[in-house]
Design a protein around this nucleic acid. Structure first.
Length: 626
DNA sequence: ATAGGGTTAG
């Protein structure tokens, strides 16, 4: 005989659920999943308590607390109240505020007033959230008047929400006024909101002063500063501030990590990015979608696209940012086929592509010269998704068509544009003219660009290259003379490499580095060994008015050569050399990098102004199409 | 019974 013991029936809700979540026992509000809320709703109906207004309002609260409240469901509950309480209405306003139609919050508020129901202090904080979301300046200002009318002018919560509202609507002056009026009754949130407001306006100097003035600071004050630096392009300052936070033993939050990863990515600092990654792990930060996405972006922008792929595939929750980052990452690495395949997967998942998604898709096509695909997706974007092409989309198409030799089609596309082309677009077309020898069109565009921006040295260089290719030497000299006469601001090219825990930044002909002598010796060695391999310099990309021998010296000391030389010197054999530079790599450096990768048996990864080049065993991943 | 500030893509 065997003992048989029936299993006890499973309770509908676990004990933990009952204590924390069941609205039959209202307690402190906690976020619950939609399913949990629906279960509670079912239990309420089954228990015959559906007419209990308090219970139903509490149910509405749990919907309002979710990140994206289901509007239809919330409304069906709200509409069942004969006389909705302020509490219930507040929660419905809150649901609308988080929805795609935040203006409905204001509509509901008006109907509440028509019923002669009086708003309370909570009502206004939710309303200002809604107006911030909707950028509803007029409505918000009217509600501001209501705040005073109903006697809530001194409520700190409301004032902070108001401050934030004006800030969100870019009404810096109004925010300032509310802030000044709050003198004497400010709390940390008031200060942080004002700080965020100044940061949003791009005034980091003022933000620094405000930060120093604050009577108290917390983790949000610090993360606001760091994200502010990143958003305003002060990347090094962001990293410095973050290091300071760490050194002082202050708290770190996810927003900081995300922003610092973005800074590392933009600067191309792989070692730093890795450090932030390990920090996130050691501090036990959960791998959220935004953190994961930032990591994928960082690894892609620092040359480790394989690492990005691994993270992407392991991520359970992906949002549109995750997909966009991955598609764009594959594109900058020239992995066009993978980018397009991923885009198709993205569509199959039912995601709606954004304008950036198509920039990723089209730039993937342009970098790989996939003309047929490029034309297809450009059409798809307009016709299937109703996305109006922006300057960047045109940029990709003109680049794609122009570089693959369809210059006429590129011109046609520009002529049909709704918006007038910007200098970058003209410069893209000029580049195509240069490659394919359209000297007359190139001349026209080059002159136009110089007219548009006479201080930009790049335009003169481009135009003189067009002339040089057409062997119009007098014109070359004329343009060069013009360039020197007009005192143009030369955008200095730089390259950087991380080594031995430091960032080394070089400009062409740099002599400032502490190991300058060794670097120079290495340049000599490189010169000898690549010459043995059959290399002779291509000096056509040097346009300075100097002799050939000098040209060779200048080209030998292009910033990326210095960086690669340092890489060869200080990193162990077998390690990959990673260089980041701001401008596009010149033809000669590209050739030299290929040969170095072969004779020194080193993989070299260069991120230039527009894409990645993986040099390995004498070839480049761009297949010399860039 | 309910509340406020910070985040990533070209």
């Amino acid at each position: 005989m065997f003992a048989y013991k029936p299993k006890p029936p499973k309770p509908l809700l676990s004990v933990r659920h009952k204590v924390i979540c069941d609205p039959l026992l209202p307690s402190t509000p906690t976020f619950r999943s939609l399913n949990q809320t629906k279960q509670s709703h079912a239990r309420i109906i089954v228990s015959g308590l559906a007419r209990d207004a308090k219970l139903m309002a509490h149910l509405l609260l749990s919907l309002a607390l979710s990140p994206s409240p289901p509007l239809h469901y919330s409304l069906s509950i709200y509409n069942h109240f004969n006389y909705p309480s302020v509490f219930a209405t507040n929660n419905m306003i809150r649901c609308f505020a988080k929805s795609h139609s935040p203006r409905q919050s204001v509509v509901l508020y008006s109907s509440m007033l028509r019923r002669y129901a009086k708003p309370n202090n909570h009502t206004f904080t939710f309303l200002f959230q809604a107006c911030s979301e909707a950028l509803a300046v007029e409505e918000g200002a009217q509600i501001h008047a209501h705040v005073l009318k109903f006697g809530f002018g001194a409520d700190l919560f409301i004032r902070n929400a108001l401050l934030n509202f004006y800030s969100a609507c870019f009404r810096l002056e109004c925010s300032r006024k509310v802030f000044e009026e709050s003198l004497g009754s400010r709390d940390l949130v008031t200060w942080n909101t004002m700080l965020a407001c100044v940061v949003r306006d791009g005034q980091m100097g003022v933000a620094e002063k405000l930060f120093d003035e604050m009577p108290r600071r917390d983790v949000i004050s610090c993360s606001t500063m760091i994200t502010g630096y990143v958003q305003n392009g002060n990347l090094e300052e962001a990293l410095e501030f973050f290091r300071d936070v760490r050194e002082k033993g202050l708290r770190v939050n996810e927003a900081m990590l995300v922003s610092v990863l973005s800074a590392s990515a933009q600067l191309g600092l792989l070692e730093h990015g890795r450090f932030v990654h390990s920090l996130a792990e050691s501090l036990n930060f959960p791998m959220t979608t935004s953190l994961g996405t930032s990591l994928i972006d960082m690894y892609a922008k620092c040359g480790c696209i394989e690492q990005s792929k691994i993270l992407f595939n392991n991520m359970r929750q992906k949002d549109i940012w995750t997909w966009n980052v991955m598609i764009c990452g594959l594109a900058t690495h020239g992995l066009a086929k993978e980018a397009l395949a991923l885009f198709e997967r993205f569509l199959n998942k039912g995601f709606a592509p954004a304008t950036v998604t198509f920039i990723g898709v089209l730039s993937a096509c342009s970098r790989a010269g996939l003309v047929r695909e490029g034309r297809h997706y450009f059409k798809l974007m307009k016709e299937n998704y109703g996305i109006q092409p922006e300057m960047e989309h045109y940029g990709c198409m003109v680049d794609l068509l122009g570089r693959t030799g369809f210059v006429d089609e590129a011109v046609e596309l520009i002529e049909k544009m709704q918006v007038s082309p910007d200098p970058v677009l003209w410069a893209t077309l000029l580049g195509a003219c240069k490659i394919h020898g359209f000297s007359e069109l190139g001349e026209e565009i080059g002159s136009k660009l110089i007219q548009l921006d006479p201080t930009h040295s790049g335009h003169y260089v481009q135009l003189s290259t067009v002339y040089a290719k057409a062997k119009k030497w007098e014109e070359v000299i004329r343009v060069r003379r013009l360039m020197s006469e007009r005192n143009t601001n030369k955008a200095a090219g730089w390259s950087l490499i991380e080594a031995q825990g430091k960032v080394h930044k070089f400009v062409a002909g740099d002599r400032d580095h502490e190991s300058f002598k060794e670097i120079h010796k290495m340049l000599e060695t490189i010169g000898t060994r690549i010459a043995e391999a059959g290399y002779s310099p291509n000096i056509s990309s040097v346009l300075h008015d100097i002799g050939d021998e000098e040209k060779e010296i200048v080209i030998k000391e292009h910033s990326e050569r210095l960086a690669i030389a340092l890489g060869l010197l200080v990193t162990p054999y077998g390690d990959c050399i990673r260089v980041v530079k701001n401008l596009r790599v010149c033809e000669d450096c590209h050739e030299v990098s290929k040969i170095i990768s072969k004779v020194f048996e080193r993989e070299i990864i260069v991120r230039d102004g527009s894409r990645f080049h993986h040099f390995k065993e004498g070839t480049c991943s761009c297949h010399d199409f860039w």
